[in-house]
Design a binder for these strands. Structure first.
Length: 1137
RNA sequence: AGAUCCGUAGCUCAGCCUGGUUAGAGCACUACACUGAUAAUGUAGGGGUCAGCAGUUCAAAUCUGCUCGGGUCUACCA
């Protein structure tokens, strides 16, 4: 007894997922899929480590599907694809989660809870949802090695990070500097860029903005201004600020070197005193009305709305350089000598615009990054008049100790910015004070405005390698290309040094120790180096081991966890004999993940060969939000470390000649960045809106296959996708339903006939046209799907598979071949049909395996368990199909398309005249334009006739005089040649008579007269179609036109009745629940109107309904009443014993 | 503010790179068929100023520029 194909009641995708998952786990299918490729060329994939302290969402399903399908595809293509998993474990999200859980703030750490306890909690909490992640990984069918993942908090991992930092340090790429950073006075902490990018951080707020006047001092540089003004007049530089609290810290005024400025004579609108002010020419209209220009200033008096104004002089910004001005708000605390530079000068900066303000930028180096930079360049010094609580320091008169913003939620708070503005107004130093609405960053935790504040920080000098990074980026295959060239390329072009410092607790400590005076410093690059230094320090008596403790053990213990606070307890001794303590900073977590190519293998301390084989990655994929995150840090570190890597690899035996070629300084060769997943209305998913899709529920309801297929085929992965459950339902029904039906159909009949693919493979030439056609289409599909996946275009590939299954396989091949499966003996034709359909199903399963791994394996196993054709236990251990060019027959595919079109047209005609398909008709007329077309049609004639139920196909050619032809220009061919004459030719062709067309066809050329010039038209420069057959109802598509003979002769009507009768009996068979192979007995109550039909087509009817005979009886007592083309009759059907 | 992606039927998307004269598919809706795959299928119908404006061209959904709307990323904004 041969094995049967499994048959099912209905499609249950979640059940299939579960069944296959259990099989995979029992058979270690994933591990096997890697082992089976041992020795093969590796395809290197890097897993971007997720942070397991949050729940996975549906957006993780799409990026992981993308990763998984590429890895599965490459495995099937013969590569060995190891996928080492990983966990990102450090950083702010974890810390915040812990603080929330414990109900503490950052300030409590070290007080209410020890740092050791705190970090221990972080270590525990960070993998809080690991089980959920693992479950998602399993259930969605993401194959990744989670048995030996890299974990960023492990000592070995950190040791590699230290090695990297030390390499950078030694190459002078790691340095410390003061920089202006976002700082939250309310929270008392600096904010990372990550924090600043929390949703809702930037808010529109109304602040008091002030246009203030800095009084110019007459000197060599400003002489030209004073000369232009009246003798003894005061001249002011006008500057705008939305943060008046920074004015006491003002030390400079920055102008754009190429911006035009003017000196304007006018009045102060508040004090009404005559003034002369300097501002950008382009912004004059913002402060002055045109009708006020050059009117007599004598007439101006208090209360006048219209300010008179006159331009006295004009100059470029660079002409103002080095002008000096009086300090605006002088106090004890901000005395000029305290600035530590040469302040109160006009300086030049490229960042100045004339978009708003006055074109002159008030510059307080302490509170703006641009200010700091330009201030440093001109040595104007720095004044920090605000402390870290966000209040003015002592010595600022009436403003001393006042908060610059309401950080404490004080209901009595009086805005100091208003008071400053009022004071300036009174002192004739303000030109305009108003509320100004702008976008300003806020601390996402306290909801209070942040300020920019000078803080010490460590940087990586990425800008030193900028050119290299830009060049190398051009060698990376970005999907989509625009992200690499645009978003990422621009980011590289505008790169700034990487601020590594974080003042937190749970992260990788910066391995730099220094003496208190900062003169001696050491960077540690390994645990061995750490121990060596410790050893020295113990010997010097700086770190005495506890009494009775073994020194070796003591050192071992101290170095067993490189986190805070333990690492901070370590004190070194400097060469000068002084104690050295670690600098307090931790490093940016993005450094952790960017270093994963090295740290995951504990390079260079071990696994140098493994690393060498797994670097760089062939492929990585993450969400587009990682462009400036992981994609950047990977790229930056690869570029920075190029030489260090070469050194290590050279030392381990990699030939010098190969180094540049194999390790050009990139971390990945191809990167796919997928877009966001939005809800079905296009809104971002957020817990707040309650539109978050639970991936577990989705996969539970629809199975992983339909979910994955939908996510991949609905839109290109890099477009943001609108996630709609109805879309998954459609996928399930349309694609999986159709494919399942096709399998079910196959299994049904293959089981009846006992087809197990034991017979020899029937050569293609011996198979019928339709089989050769579907196999040709199949191979065309293989080629296109392979090309699509090679090009990282899974959406294109998936859609091609869908189209094939739906349009070609199910709705044409199977539909037209149905009879071949159930009719007649198990002979040659049946064998061909089974072999062909089997091959299609098996191949489709393999093509879809990367995207929908469960269903594909299920289909494969169902087929394979009956035939044993393949030794592999899983489809994921087989090879991806290769297209066989010799099977592809383009003319065959074309004529089948012709047949499909012709059938569709005939059916539409039948519809139009309301003649059902079951009623045979005599003939279809098809005008043929050339012998080739006729030839093609003849080969598919039988298919068309069967499909549309007509007796004959008649071809009409010119000679018959039936066809009416139509001509139009072939625009593509003629366009270049004719250019502007195109329209005239088009018109001329429109006026062609049938004779003209015939002449052109006969002679091959035709001479037109266009604008009195002769123009020779060749036959291939026009398109001739037949659009009409006079006297017939026709339908047409492209160059194909069909006409249908709709006459139902009595002969045809009898046949139609017979077919209708068969149909009714079949229905009864089915209602009675007979097996397909049961034979039956039929009795019919004699009806004159049908007698002829039943007699004439007796044989046909009997063979169709598996009856030995049809017995016509006069009376039928217990028959079933049926209706055949409006004729009522009674029949009795019984199973033959 | 800059960069980038997107805007085609009620909905989801093809087509655009490489311009060519009736702009396609699926879903949904309506009607009618078919049915020995049947919770499947076919045919037909309605539904589009291809976001808008301008330009290049004989010809623009397609190329260019600008504008508008939506998303994302980045940002030191005075």
């Amino acid at each position: 007894m041969p094995n049967k194909y499994k048959e099912y009641q209905q499609l249950n995708l979640p059940a299939i997922s579960q069944e296959i998952l259990a099989k995979w786990e029992a058979e270690r299918a994933f591990e096997r899929s890697v082992e089976l490729r041992a020795g093969a060329t590796p395809f290197v994939f890097y897993e971007g480590p997720p942070s397991a302290n949050g729940m996975p969402g549906i957006h993780h399903v799409i990026s992981r599907t993308l990763k998984d399908l590429v890895c599965r595809y490459k495995t099937m293509k013969g590569f060995q694809v190891k996928r080492k998993g990983g966990w990102d474990t450090h950083g702010l999200p974890v810390e915040l989660g812990v603080e929330k859980m414990l109900g503490i703030t950052k300030e409590d750490i070290g007080k209410k809870i020890s740092i050791a306890e705190y970090n221990e909690t972080c270590r525990r909490e960070v993998l809080k949802y690991k089980d959920k992640w693992d479950e998602l990984t399993r259930r969605m069918g993401y194959w990744v090695d989670l048995k030996e993942p890299y974990i960023t908090f492990q000592n070995e991992y950190i040791e590699t990070l230290w090695w990297i930092l030390n390499e950078l340090y030694n190459k002078d790429l790691l340095y410390e500097s003061v920089s202006i950073q976002p700082y939250s006075p309310a929270a008392g902490t600096g904010l990372s860029s990550h924090e600043l990018n929390q949703p809702g951080t930037y808010k529109d707020v109304k602040d008091t903005s002030a246009v203030v006047m800095f009084k110019a001092i007459r000197n060599k540089e400003s002489e030209f201004l004073f000369k232009a003004a009246a003798a003894g007049a005061e001249i002011f530089f006008m500057a705008w600020t939305t943060t008046p609290w920074t004015l006491p810290s003002n030390l400079g005024l920055t102008v754009g070197p190429n911006i035009d400025y003017v000196l304007v004579k006018t009045f102060n609108p508040y004090t009404h005193l005559p003034i002369n002010i300097v501002l950008a020419k382009a912004l004059v209209s913002k402060y002055f009305k045109p009708e006020g220009e050059n009117i007599d200033p004598e007439g101006y008096k208090e209360g006048d709305k219209l300010l008179p104004w006159t331009v006295l002089a004009e100059c470029k910004g660079k002409d103002l350089e080095e002008c000096r001005y009086e300090q605006l708000l002088p106090y004890e605390a901000n005395a000029p000598e305290k600035a530590g530079g040469d302040p109160f000068r006009v300086i030049l900066g490229d960042f100045v615009t004339t978009e708003d303000g006055t074109g002159i930028v008030h510059t307080a180096p302490a509170f703006g990054a641009d200010d700091f930079k330009v201030g440093k360049k001109y040595n104007i010094g720095i004044l920090v008049m605000v402390d870290r609580q966000g209040k003015f320091i002592d010595g600022l008169g009436e403003f001393s100790n006042r908060y610059v913003k309401n950080y404490k939620d004080d209901p009595q708070y009086v805005d100091v910015n208003v008071d400053i503005s009022v004071k300036l107004k009174k002192e004739n130093r303000a030109f305009k004070i108003e509320k100004y609405e702008h976008n300003y960053p806020h601390c996402w935790r306290t909801d209070k405005p942040i300020l920019y504040y000078p803080l010490d920080a460590w940087f990586i000098r990425t800008t030193a390698l900028k050119d290299r990074m830009v060049e190398l980026n051009k060698t990376i295959n970005w999907k989509p290309r625009s992200t690499g060239e645009g978003r990422f390329g621009n980011w590289l072009e505008n790169m700034v040094d990487w601020n590594l410092s974080r003042s937190r607790y749970w992260g990788t400590p910066l391995p730099i120790w220094r003496t208190e005076d900062g003169k001696e410093e050491i960077c540690i690059g390994s645990i061995a180096a750490l121990r060596a230094e410790l050893d020295k320090s113990v010997k010097a008596g700086l770190m005495p081991p506890p009494v009775g403790d073994d020194v070796e053990k003591y050192i071992q213990k101290l170095t067993s966890d490189l986190h805070k606070p333990f690492v901070d307890e370590i004190i070194f001794v400097s060469p000068g004999g002084k104690p050295m303590r670690r600098v307090p900073d931790l490093i940016d977590v993005w450094f952790d993940s960017g270093a994963m190519p090295y740290a995951q293998w504990h390079f260079p301390f071990e696994n140098i060969d493994t690393f060498a084989q797994n670097y760089p990655a062939d492929f990585i994929a993450e969400g587009v939000d990682q462009t400036r995150g992981w994609f950047y840090t990977l790229h930056a570190l690869a570029a920075l470390l190029k030489e260090s890597i070469h050194e290590k690899l050279k030392a381990s035996g990699v030939p010098a000649a190969d180094l540049e070629r194999l390790y050009p300084g990139i971390a990945y060769k191809t990167v796919v960045s997928n877009g966001l997943v939005l809800d079905k209305n296009g809104n971002k998913m957020s817990k707040r809106l309650g539109n978050v899709v639970d991936p577990f529920k989705t996969i539970g309801d629809f199975g992983a296959d339909a979910t994955r297929w939908y996510l991949i085929t609905n839109a290109s992965p890099w477009d943001s996708m609108k996630f709609d459950i109805d879309g998954i339902k459609e996928t399930q029904r349309k694609f999986f339903g159709t494919l399942y039906n096709t399998y079910q159909f196959f299994a049904l009949y293959a089981n009846v006939d006992g087809f197990n693919f034991q017979e020899a493979y029937v050569p293609l030439k011996d198979r019928p046209e339709i089989d050769r056609w579907i196999l040709s289409s199949l191979n065309t599909l293989i080629a296109k799907v392979g090309a699509g996946l090679d090009d990282y275009e899974p959406t294109v590939a998936g859609r091609l598979i869908e189209d094939f299954v739906d349009e070609h396989l199910s709705n044409w091949y199977v539909r037209l071949s149905r009879r071949r499966f159930w009719k007649g003996d198990y002979g040659h034709d049946k064998l061909c049909a089974y072999q062909t359909l089997y091959e299609c199903l098996e191949t489709v399963a393999r093509l879809m395996a990367p995207v929908s791994p469960f269903f594909a394996d299920w289909l494969f196993c169902n087929l394979n368990s009956a035939t044993g054709r393949n030794k592999a236990a899983s489809i994921h251990h087989t090879d991806f199909p290769e297209a066989d060019e010799s099977v592809i027959d383009v003319p065959l595919e074309e004529r089948m398309q012709l047949a499909q079109d012709a059938s569709s047209l005939v059916l539409s005609l039948r519809k139009k005249v309301n003649i059902k398909v079951r009623q045979p008709l005599q003939k279809v007329l098809i005008p043929v334009l050339n012998p080739g077309m006729k030839h093609q049609l003849e080969k598919v004639e039988d298919l068309v006739k069967a499909e549309v139920n007509v007796k004959e196909l008649q071809y009409l050619s010119d000679g018959d005089g039936f066809i009416k032809k139509k001509i139009k220009p072939n625009f593509i061919a003629l366009g270049k040649k004719l250019g502007s004459k195109m329209k005239a030719v088009s018109t001329a062709l429109g006026a062609f008579s049938q004779e003209d067309i015939a002449k052109l066809e006969k002679e091959g050329i035709y001479t037109l007269s266009i604008e009195s010039e002769p123009l020779i038209l060749k036959i291939n420069e026009v398109e001739i179609t037949s659009e009409d057959i006079p006297g017939w109802v026709v339908a047409g598509k492209d160059t194909l036109t069909v006409a249908l003979d709709v006459t139902v002769t009595p002969e045809l009507a009898r046949e139609g009745n017979a077919r209708e009768f068969v149909n009714r009996i079949q229905k009864i068979r089915k209602d009675n629940g007979y097996e397909l192979t049961d034979r039956i007995l039929v009795k019919v109550a004699d009806v004159p109107a049908l007698k002829d039909s039943l007699t004439q087509f007796n044989d046909y009817i009997c063979s169709e309904i598996l009856a030995d005979s049809i017995e016509l009886v006069a009376e039928l007592a217990n028959g079933t009443e049926i209706e055949v083309n409006d004729i009522l009759l009674k029949v009795f059907v019984s199973k033959k014993a």
